[in-house]
């Protein structure tokens, strides 16, 4: 059904305002095999718009994030406006439009962790890595995110690096955690 070869053309056709904007963001061109991958994911959900969230989950786990170009392709496949896809992507905190670091650091700010001092841990990470929440270090190694409760309240305050959970973290322990991944 889909015969896309270049997403840029597609955007230019669909968004008449694109050309008149003073600065047009340079789009990342998706390679044909990437487009094919997205097509396959959409097909596996029968291109059903009701499965949009599942499609986005799968796509994000494939690409690591959901840039605008990817959303375009999904919108085309599911035959819905790209605004609707973007609306869903921006609504849910699980979806991200910027790539995360190689070691994504998530600091739990759930209540149990909060009352046991997780804000200080967050400050320490921001200070050590010199980035803000939602940002990635220039070398692409670390990114900081906050999440609310991973259900390991017995270990509060909790920090996750990738899938690994660090419990009972102290502000002094932050350096150690970073050092462990810096080697």
């Amino acid at each position: 059904m889909s015969t896309k070869t270049n997403t840029e053309n597609h955007i230019a056709n669909e968004c008449p305002y694109n050309g008149s904007l003073p600065e047009v963001e340079v789009k990342i061109k998706l390679t044909a095999d990437k487009i094919e991958k997205i097509d396959a994911i959409c097909r596996s959900f029968d291109n059903d718009p009701g499965e949009l969230i599942n499609v986005l989950h799968e796509t994000q786990s494939e690409f690591g994030y959901l840039p605008a170009e990817v959303q375009d392709v999904i919108a085309q496949n599911l035959r819905i406006p790209v605004a609707q896809v973007y609306g869903v992507v921006s609504f849910y905190s699980f979806f991200t439009m910027t790539p995360k670091g190689e070691h994504p650091i998530s600091i739990c700010l759930g209540t149990a962790c909060y009352v046991r001092g997780s804000e200080k841990i967050l400050e320490e990470f921001k200070k050590e890595l010199k980035i803000e929440v939602g940002e990635t270090t220039p070398d692409g190694k670390f990114s900081i995110n906050c999440l609310r409760c991973v259900g390991a309240c017995g270990l509060a305050p909790v920090v996750m690096v990738g899938e690994r959970v660090f419990g009972r973290v102290s502000p002094e322990g932050v350096k150690q955690i970073i050092a462990e991944y810096n080697n």
């Binding site: 969230i53 989950h57 849910y92 905190s93 699980f94």
Partner: peptide, 8 residues
């Protein structure tokens, strides 16, 4: 199964 995506 249907999955949430982080929205309270």
């Amino acid at each position: 199964l249907r999955y949430g995506a982080g929205a309270f």
